[in-house]
């Protein structure tokens, strides 16, 4: 990406009305997501949700939906208990993104975006656990946020980005490759800038920036590598951007894998086949979770809830 374009994009991001200021709930939410589940306090979550009427309503509605047995849940606390932390935090993230993303600007179908983001978050976390990465929750977060650049492209370059998606789907190509050709930059660049603009940590910024090319950084951090591999795995396992890419993925031969092996020698002896069988088995689960949390009914305007 050339310097002029970089400068221009950065300026545009800071002027984007919807995106320039992160929703008030986002920062405390991201703080919370960084913690291991057993260190998150229920009170904190309830407090966070209660700040925001629309989100609280959404929580209650989901907890009272047939999916959860139509319990008569009347407090945010009871709703959070009924839904479980996993679902609550995915939902919070979804609602945050929906705040910054005007409904008519979606280019990638929203359900594909949610499935891919959440799928990637869960796979990244599983992989992190597998290699005994010390902060698996942070890995989850990095997976969840890695494609935020799509929001920027959808809002600022709606037509161009729509053309990218059309070309990529038609020719079964990787979207970032087409973005580079058509727009001159990819969602990785845009994601990096948005994450920087929102003041996210350097590791998260790097994961967003390098998840398609870990060689961009002289020393790719493990987080970027994990996200890169999970992203590949999700895309080759029907959790991509809503179309099929024609590709074969050799995880073990990937530069990110080799970088990880250097830091985590245990990986070299890992049974990659068994791991991917496990991930395959979990994919249905991931899709079910995403549909439960972001399903069409729950994603419509919270005001009606």
């Amino acid at each position: 990406m050339n310097e002029k374009l970089q400068f221009q994009l950065r300026a545009q991001i800071s002027q984007m009305d919807s995106i320039s200021t992160a929703p008030a709930i986002l920062m405390p939410l991201l703080e919370m997501l960084r913690l291991p589940s057993d260190r998150i306090s229920l009170e904190k979550v309830v407090e966070l949700i209660s700040y925001d009427g629309a989100i609280a309503a959404q929580c209650l509605r989901l907890a009272n939906s047939p999916l959860f047995g139509r319990r008569q849940t009347e407090t945010v606390r009871a709703a959070v208990m009924a839904l479980g932390l996993e679902r609550v935090r995915s939902m919070l993230f979804g609602l945050c993104v929906n705040r910054v993303m005007p409904q008519d600007k979606w280019v990638i179908p929203p359900d594909a975006f949610w499935r891919h983001s959440l799928g990637c978050a869960l796979v990244t976390q599983r992989m992190a656990n597998k290699i005994e990465y010390p902060e698996p929750e942070k890995a989850y977060l990095a997976g969840l946020l890695h494609d935020l650049g799509f929001l920027v492209n959808s809002v600022l370059y709606t037509d161009g980005f729509r053309e990218c998606l059309r070309l990529a789907a038609e020719q079964h190509l990787a979207l970032h490759v087409v973005e580079e050709q058509v727009l001159g930059f990819s969602h990785c660049d845009a994601g990096q800038m948005l994450c920087e603009h929102w003041g996210l940590s350097k590791e998260l910024v790097d994961a967003a920036r390098c998840h398609h090319d870990v060689c961009l950084l002289p020393k790719a951090g493990p987080l970027a590598c994990l996200v890169h591999l999970s992203d590949l795995l999700c895309r080759v396992r029907y959790l991509g951007y809503g179309y099929e890419e024609f590709m074969g993925v050799d995880l073990g031969g990937d530069a990110a894998w080799q970088a990880l092996v250097r830091s985590y020698p245990a990986l070299e002896h890992m049974d990659l086949v068994r791991f991917t069988f496990d991930i395959d088995g979990a994919m249905d689960q991931i899709v079910a979770t995403v549909d439960a949390v972001f399903g069409a009914k729950t994603m419509t305007a919270p005001a009606s809830g």
Partner: peptide, 24 residues
């Protein structure tokens, strides 16, 4: 579909495709 070559052979490369794995 669910068969693995783990610890049987490491000359092949495991490659993932949509819905299936193969050895290259």
């Amino acid at each position: 579909n669910a068969e693995s070559l783990f610890q049987v052979d490491d000359s092949f490369r495991l490659v993932h495709f949509a819905g299936v794995t193969a050895y290259l």
